[in-house]
Simulated assay, not measured.
Amino acid sequence: MNRESGRYKGKRIIQGGRTQVRTVLYMAMMSAMQSNPIFKATYQRLLEAGKPKKVAIIACVRKMVVILNSMLRDGTMWDENMAKN
């Protein structure tokens, strides 16, 4: 949800949707950032670019979902080289 009116631009927040799914994905990413070098590097790169921590985590969650969807589509296992793209 964005808070904008005219020239005013407020903070955007996540609201609505599936709270349980969002919570599970968030916690999965917190664990993945500690053990997976791909997600850890992505998170650090976003922080160095000046992104807030929660924004960086959610961006990594989206990257994880895209990778998992492509793995299901192709019927493949985790490949670190695939995840670097």
Rank of each mutant, 00 (worst) to 15 (best):
M27I: 00
A28L: 11
A28Y: 01
A28W: 09
A28F: 15
M29W: 01
M29R: 01
M29F: 02
M29P: 00
M30F: 14
M30E: 09
S31H: 14
A32K: 02
M33Y: 06
M33F: 06
M33T: 04
Q34L: 06
Q34C: 00
Q34H: 02
Q34F: 08
S35A: 08
S35Y: 09
S35G: 08
N36S: 09
N36T: 05
N36G: 03
P37D: 12
P37V: 05
F39A: 03
F39R: 00
F39S: 01
F39K: 07
A41Q: 08
A41L: 03
A41V: 03
A41R: 15
T42P: 02
T42M: 07
Y43N: 08
Y43F: 07
Q44P: 01
Q44A: 07
R45D: 13
R45M: 01
R45S: 06
R45Y: 05
R45C: 09
R45L: 04
L46Q: 04
L47V: 00
E48H: 06
E48N: 11
E48L: 03
E48P: 03
A49M: 05
A49G: 07
G50L: 08
G50A: 12
K51C: 03
K51N: 07
K51Q: 11
P52T: 00
P52R: 00
K53E: 11
K53Q: 10
K54H: 03
K54W: 08
K54S: 10
I57R: 09
I57N: 01
I58Q: 02
I58Y: 07
I58S: 02
A59T: 11
A59C: 03
A59P: 02
C60D: 02
V61G: 02
V61R: 07
R62Y: 11
R62P: 12
K63Y: 04
K63R: 10
K63E: 04
V65C: 12
V65S: 04
V65L: 11
V65T: 06
V65Y: 08
V65F: 09
V66K: 14
V66M: 07
I67N: 14
L68K: 15
L68D: 13
L68H: 10
L68A: 08
L68Q: 07
N69L: 00
S70Y: 15
S70N: 14
S70T: 12
S70D: 13
M71V: 14
M71C: 13
M71S: 06
M71I: 03
M71N: 15
L72P: 08
L72V: 13
L72G: 12
R73D: 11
R73A: 15
D74G: 06
D74K: 13
G75D: 06
G75L: 14
G75F: 15
T76Y: 07
T76D: 10
T76S: 12
M77D: 12
M77Q: 13
W78I: 09
W78N: 12
W78K: 15
D79E: 12
D79Q: 05
D79L: 06
E80G: 04
E80F: 05
N81I: 04
N81G: 08
N81V: 04
N81L: 10
M82V: 13
M82G: 08
M82N: 13
A83W: 10
A83M: 07
A83G: 01
K84Q: 00
K84N: 01
K84E: 09
K84A: 07
K84W: 00
K84S: 04
K84V: 05
N85R: 09
N85M: 09
